[in-house]
Amino acid sequence: MAGTRTANTSRSERTKAADERMIDRELEDLPAELRWREWMLRVEAVIFASAEPVTRETLVRVVGRACSIDLLIDDLREELRTRPYDIVAVAGGWQHRTRAAYGPVIRASAAPTRSGAASLSEHEAAVLMAIAYLQPVTRGELSKVFGKDVSRDTIGSLRDAGFLSSGPRSPTPGAPYTYVTTKQFLSVFGLETLRDLPDLERLEDAGLLSRQALAQDTTTEPDGDVLED
């Protein structure tokens, strides 16, 4: 079995290398305007076909050395300005996203979408939001924030959805594991980095999240969380 996987991996790498050799990245035989246009089409095709945000390192494989990815993306976004979708920077790469104005239309259509956020319950979404702002945070600390127990099932559902992973152990008694958000979280919620999260003070003013709950009691009881693979 291991030998088969190794052979398949080797074959895939050879195919990838052959494809890269077949692609004329520089396009020196084309006029500058047509060359730029072809690079735009290539980049858009890669982003459109990808199931996850496409990094700069990936895009440079299909364009010339003199090509500016940032300027190329700017031109693509300008062309899409009147379309219901855009190319946005998320999770360290770029991805096609439907414009927010068309969200109600898509929800009304009941069409299946690629977003995992739609399947979250209100409580799961609230817990995920708290983790995003307070990470790394333990389950016990989350329970203080919500004033009630945050179950292992809730954490497990968010982990299964790919939104959470285990962080470092907390320095509190019992050294419980903490939880942090993942690149999948950034991608699904359209964030390039955690710095793009809405302002925490506004959420506190709206009563949706409280940092004081963590500061009221610096002694955390062991919550018995264990790291799951």
Results as ranks from 00 to 15, higher is better:
49 A>I: 02
137 V>T: 13
133 Y>I: 05
57 E>P: 01
135 Q>A: 11
96 H>Y: 15
134 L>F: 15
75 D>A: 14
59 L>I: 05
54 V>R: 07
51 A>W: 07
103 G>L: 14
83 R>Y: 13
137 V>M: 10
133 Y>G: 09
140 G>W: 08
72 L>M: 11
109 S>W: 10
112 P>R: 07
115 S>Q: 03
57 E>V: 00
57 E>S: 13
146 F>S: 02
88 V>F: 01
116 G>A: 13
96 H>Q: 12
114 R>L: 14
92 G>W: 03
140 G>I: 04
80 L>E: 10
138 T>S: 15
102 Y>H: 14
108 A>T: 04
125 A>K: 04
110 A>Y: 05
104 P>D: 06
119 S>Y: 10
89 A>M: 06
61 R>Q: 15
89 A>Q: 10
142 L>R: 05
143 S>E: 02
126 A>T: 09
63 V>M: 12
67 C>P: 01
117 A>E: 09
131 I>A: 11
81 R>P: 00
112 P>V: 05
85 Y>T: 01
106 I>P: 04
60 V>T: 13
105 V>W: 15
67 C>Y: 01
88 V>K: 08
77 R>S: 05
106 I>L: 15
133 Y>F: 14
79 E>P: 00
70 D>E: 14
145 V>N: 02
61 R>L: 11
74 D>G: 03
84 P>K: 07
54 V>W: 11
114 R>T: 13
66 A>W: 00
84 P>L: 11
84 P>I: 10
145 V>R: 02
51 A>M: 03
102 Y>E: 08
88 V>A: 13
90 V>H: 07
147 G>D: 03
137 V>A: 10
94 W>M: 08
77 R>P: 04
103 G>R: 14
62 V>F: 15
71 L>R: 14
63 V>A: 07
104 P>A: 02
107 R>H: 13
126 A>V: 02
91 A>Q: 09
112 P>S: 06
130 A>V: 01
115 S>T: 14
78 E>P: 00
